[in-house]
Design a protein around this nucleic acid. Structure first.
Lengths: 339, 339
DNA sequence: GCGCTTCGTCGAAGCGCTTCGATGGATCCG
DNA sequence: CGGATCCATCGAAGCGCTTCGACGAAGCGC
C-alpha cells in the first residue's frame, strides 16, 4: 500500500520525527539529511495521510465552501468565487472542498461540520438572518460569509458593493446623455424579504438617480429569461421614452435582448443596456459584446479564505470588505438618442 | 471542547469499545446499555471525529465528486447529478464532498486523492481518454465515471443514452408529421475530438433519420446563445422549409428562440423545437413551455455512488448503465404545417 | 576553557477511534 | 447437570502522524 512516514524514515535512515520536521519546517533539519529525506519521499511516492495528520495536529488543513446545489441555474458566478477560494487555499497549503448543501435546511451542514472534517467554512449567498452561521460555529469551526447578515458583527465577511455598482451604472449612462434610465432588479419576493444585494442595489439606484434629479424607475423581475422579456415589454409600454436599462438579473438579461429587438429598439442606438454583477463568462453569452459590471468573484473567494486563515491562526478577524464591481464598457451602451 | 467517545463511555458507565459497537452495530449491545449510551451521546452532543474514525478504520466514509468549476456556465445539469449522488451517499451513511478541479489538469486531483481524504471519486464529464482515471486509481481510490471512456473496461460508469434520445426526438417529430428535421449539436471541436455524447447523438440522429428515409441535416454549434442564433439563421437560409429543430446544446437553445422569432417563424405553428438532455430547471428558462428530453441527472449521480460503494465493499463493479432521457411534451412541438 | 545557547536529531506519548481476543455469565441440549 | 454455545462487555493494540522533552555536538563570549 501507500508509503508511510516510517517507510520514508527507514529509507532515509533517520527517525520518523525528523521526517515530520523536514516536512513541516517546525524545527531545523540538516541540509544533507533533508536531501536524503526528499529523495526517499520521491522514491516511495510518499504523501501524508490526511486523517492521521488531522488527528495528531488537531487541524484538518481543509476548508469547505457550503455550495448551494439546489436551484442554481447559472454556475459561472458561483464558480468564479470557488476558483478564487481554491487558489487562496492552495497558496496556504490548505485543501478546499465543496459541501453540497441546500441553502435552506442546515441539517446537512450540521452533519458535515459536526464531524470536524474541515477547519473552517465559507458560507455563500448569506441571508439576512442565516441559521447556518450558528450551525457552523456551534461545531467549533471558523466561519466566513460571502454576503452578510443584518448585523455581521465581527464575522469575516466579503460582500459586493451593490450601491456603488448602481452608482457606477447610472453615472456611465448619464455621462452618455441618458436621463430616462430604468433598473431591472431581481424578484419582488427577495426585495420583500429584505435580501441584502437586492435591497442595496435598489437603494443605490434610487440615490444615484435622485442625486442627478432623475426620476427612478425600478422594476422587480423574476430570475428567468421570459420574466426579463415581460419586464421590458411592460417597461416600454409604460414609459416609451426609456433609453437606458440597467439589469441586475443574470437570467432576465437573456429575455431583455429579445424583447428589445421585438419592440424594434436597436441596441445601443435606441436603448443602452448595462448588466450589473454578471460574471464575464455570462456576459459572453449575450448576443453581442455586453457592457457590464463584473463582480469581484475570485477576489471574494480569496478574501473569505484568507479571513478564515487569519481566524484559524488566532488573529482577530479582518474587517468586512465591500468590494466594488468593475465596469467593462463594450457595445451595448452608447450615446443617448436625440429627440 | 467537543465530547469524545471516552466521555460518552464514562457518562454511560460502559467501556469505550462498547460505545463504538453501539454506534457501528458490529457486535450486539444490550438494550438497556444502548439506551444509556444513546442518552449520554445526546446529552454531550457527541459526534464521531471523522479523522480518528478514518485513521482507525482505514475508511474515510467520504466520497468525492470531481466537480468542474472552470468554464461551466450552467450549473443546473451538473447539480442534478450532484444532488442525486449526495442523496445516495447519505443513504449509505457516507458524506459527499465536491472537489473543485479543472477538468484538464489533473494535478489538483492528484493532490487531493493522494492524501486519501476520500474512499472513492466520481468523475464527471469523462473524456474519451481521461487522464484523471489513472490519477485516482494510482492513489488507490475507487473510481466511477459519469460518461465513459473509449473502452470503459470494468470501470463503474453511468452514461446517457444519447442515441436513444435522438431516436426519441426524431420519432416524436415524425409522429407529428415533420419530415424536414434539423439537429443542432454541440461544437465542431468536440465532434472532432470524438467526445462521446456529441458523437453518439450525431450517430443517433443520422440513424433515426435514415431509418425513416429522411435527409439528415445536422449542424455543429458552439455552446453560446449567439452561436445558436447564427446556427438557426444559417439553417433557415440553407433549407427554408425546415419544420423541426432538435437542439442538444443548452446555451444555444436561448439563441434559437430569438432567431426563429426574428425570422418570423412561430413556434410551434411553423417550426417545432425540441431540446435534448436539458435539465428541467433549464427548460423552464425558455420563453415558453419547452418540449424537452430530461436527462436522468439524479439517477446518474445515485448510480455512480452505488457503484462506488459496491466496489468498496469488495463486490465486482456493476455493469455500466446507459440511461435513457425522458420526453416531456410541452408547447414547443406541434403538428407539422401543411404546404 | 567553562558555562551558554543553538542546531540537528531521536524516542515516546498521544490524537480519538476501530477491532481483535478474552472473559464471564446465561442458555441450551442430551 | 456438564460441556458447548451464544451474548454482552471489556481491555489493549494499533491506525499514521505531530510534537514535546531530551541529548550530544558545535559554536559563542569572556
Amino acid at each position: 500500500m501507500a508509503a508511510t512516514m516510517q517507510d520514508v524514515a527507514d529509507l532515509a535512515q533517520v527517525s520518523l520525527s525528523t521526517v515530520s520536521y523536514a516536512l513541516s519546517g517546525k524545527r531545523p533539519v540538516g541540509a544533507e539529511t533533508r536531501v536524503r529525506i526528499e529523495s526517499a519521499m520521491a522514491e516511495l511516492g510518499f504523501r501524508r495521510h490526511a486523517a492521521a495528520r488531522a488527528l495528531a495536529s488537531r487541524r484538518t488543513h481543509v476548508l469547505a465552501v457550503a455550495y448551494p446545489v439546489y436551484g442554481v441555474a447559472l454556475g459561472a458566478t458561483l464558480n468564479e468565487i470557488v476558483a478564487g477560494a481554491a487558489a487562496a487555499a492552495r497558496a496556504a497549503e490548505y485543501e478546499l472542498v465543496l459541501w453540497p448543501v441546500s441553502s435552506v435546511e442546515p441539517e446537512m451542514l450540521h452533519e458535515l461540520a459536526g464531524q470536524r472534517t474541515a477547519d473552517g467554512v465559507v458560507l455563500m449567498e448569506v441571508a439576512l438572518d442565516d441559521p447556518r452561521i450558528a450551525v457552523v460555529e456551534t461545531a467549533g469551526l471558523a466561519c466566513a460569509l460571502i454576503g452578510r447578515t443584518e448585523d455581521p458583527g465581527d464575522h469575516v465577511w466579503v460582500d459586493i458593493d451593490f450601491e456603488d455598482a448602481l452608482e457606477q451604472s447610472v453615472a456611465h449612462l448619464v455621462e452618455l446623455g441618458h436621463r430616462d434610465i430604468a433598473f431591472i432588479n431581481r424578484s419582488q419576493a427577495s426585495l420583500d424579504a429584505g435580501y441584502g444585494p437586492v435591497v442595496r442595489a435598489q437603494r443605490g439606484y434610487e440615490r444615484a438617480m435622485a442625486a442627478r434629479g432623475l426620476r427612478p424607475l425600478a422594476v422587480p423581475c423574476d430570475v428567468t429569461p421570459p420574466a426579463g422579456r415581460r419586464a421590458v415589454q411592460r417597461l416600454l409600454a409604460d414609459v416609451p421614452d426609456i433609453t437606458g436599462v440597467i439589469v441586475m438579473n443574470e437570467l432576465a438579461l437573456f429575455g431583455v435582448a429579445g424583447a428589445l429587438r421585438e419592440a424594434g429598439r436597436s441596441v445601443p442606438r435606441d436603448v443602452s443596456v448595462i448588466a450589473v454583477a454578471v460574471a464575464h463568462e455570462i456576459s459572453e453569452m449575450y448576443e453581442r459584446p455586453l457592457t457590464y459590471l463584473a463582480p469581484p468573484g475570485p477576489e471574494q473567494g480569496a478574501r473569505a479564505i484568507r479571513g478564515l486563515l487569519e481566524v484559524l491562526d488566532g488573529h482577530p478577524a479582518p474587517a468586512g470588505a465591500n468590494l466594488p464591481c468593475v465596469l467593462h464598457v463594450r457595445e451595448t451602451t452608447g450615446p443617448a438618442p436625440r429627440h
